[in-house]
């Protein structure tokens, strides 16, 4: 049947587009209509169902921090997803407590999304509350002062701009915090 495309450009074009749109529509337009959890912000008040908490939109300062995170390309080396792998829940965990896995409802307000494709540095999906402001200041000025062997670039122009620095830290401290996963609320500020 498709041999008609040998001689007819119109036929070739129509057939190529029809085949493309079958898969295109079924995998991009349909999934969010089927899986409502992609658009429903996380909220849970029942400890029996796992970590409690509520996803809140970022405030102005946190959004500014997020814009800096996007601008500097932090997301090229740091993913933001604790996958359904045991090792991921251990690595995103902290002080002996495993992290809950990331679910679509934790990212409803994210744009641009920051899931990432490459982990040159550790995953940041649960970094919120793990390190205090002073740690971030030292680390961003020169990562190797705190983590010998790190290949992260230094970011002195952020640390030297108090507004930018505070915004970035404010954003980092929100990461993974919709799910209140730390026992005793032992988050750093």
């Amino acid at each position: 049947m498709l041999s008609k495309a040998d001689n007819s450009a119109t036929f070739a074009v129509v057939a190529a587009l029809v085949l493309f749109f079958i898969g295109g529509i079924l995998t991009t337009v349909v999934p969010p209509l089927v899986d409502k959890s992609w658009a429903r912000p996380f909220e849970n008040n029942d400890p029996a169902k796992g970590p409690t908490g509520k996803l809140l939109p970022l405030n102005e300062q946190q959004l500014h921090g997020r814009a800096i995170y996007v601008r500097e390309g932090c997301w090229y080396c740091h993913t933001q997803q604790t996958r359904t792998l045991l090792a991921d829940t251990k690595r995103s965990g902290w002080k002996g407590v495993d992290s809950p896995i990331s679910t679509p409802d934790e990212f409803v307000y994210d744009t641009p999304h920051m899931f990432g494709t490459k982990r040159t540095g550790p995953d940041l999906s649960r970094v919120g509350g793990k390190y205090d402001t002073q740690w971030h200041r030292t680390h961003l000025r020169n990562p190797r002062d705190l983590v010998p062997g790190s290949v992260m670039p230094p970011f002195p122009w952020i640390v030297n701009d108090e507004t930018e620095f505070k915004s970035l830290v404010a954003y980092l401290q929100t990461l993974g915090r919709a799910k209140n996963w730390r026992p005793d609320n032992d988050y750093e500020r």
Binding site: T28, P31, P32, A39, F107, V108, T111, H113
Partner: peptide
């Protein structure tokens, strides 16, 4: 015009 996982799905497409 999208956010979160929906946007990521379009981005990776």
């Amino acid at each position: 015009f999208t956010t979160g996982v929906n946007q990521a799905n379009l981005n990776w497409m």
